[in-house]
């Protein structure tokens, strides 16, 4: 599968978060709620939306600027935190 260290870390991180979310769901079940997003979301929904947003932020960054990519990552992390907390 042509693994590299960065992609391996990336997929492990996602797997880990999924595991944590699964365990959390067993012990502290989430209820769908309305935040600033125009639909009711659970914790898992918000995580998915954060991931998708992060991917789009990175693609947009790469498309329009030559600034270093970690800038996009910081922006994505911030957006993800906002969505997880308030979405």
């Amino acid at each position: 599968m042509a693994w590299t260290l960065p992609t391996a870390l990336f997929f492990s991180a996602i797997a880990l978060v999924l595991l944590v979310l699964g365990v959390a769901q067993r012990h502290w079940p989430t209820v769908a709620r309305r935040g600033f997003l125009p639909l009711a979301t659970t914790r898992g929904d918000r995580f998915f939306i954060s991931l998708l947003t992060a991917a789009l932020i990175h693609l947009g960054w790469l498309a329009v600027t030559d600034l270093p990519v970690p800038g996009a990552s910081a922006l994505a992390l911030f957006a993800g935190a906002v969505i997880m907390a308030k979405g």
């Binding site: 042509a2 693994w3 590299t4 960065p6 992609t7 990336f10």
Partner: peptide, 23 residues
Amino acid sequence: LMTVVNYSVQDILDVDTRFFVGF
């Protein structure tokens, strides 16, 4: 899909000669 992601960050000349190229 994971394989595609792995490919997408490398320059692949053949199976054993690969370079990480980031984005």
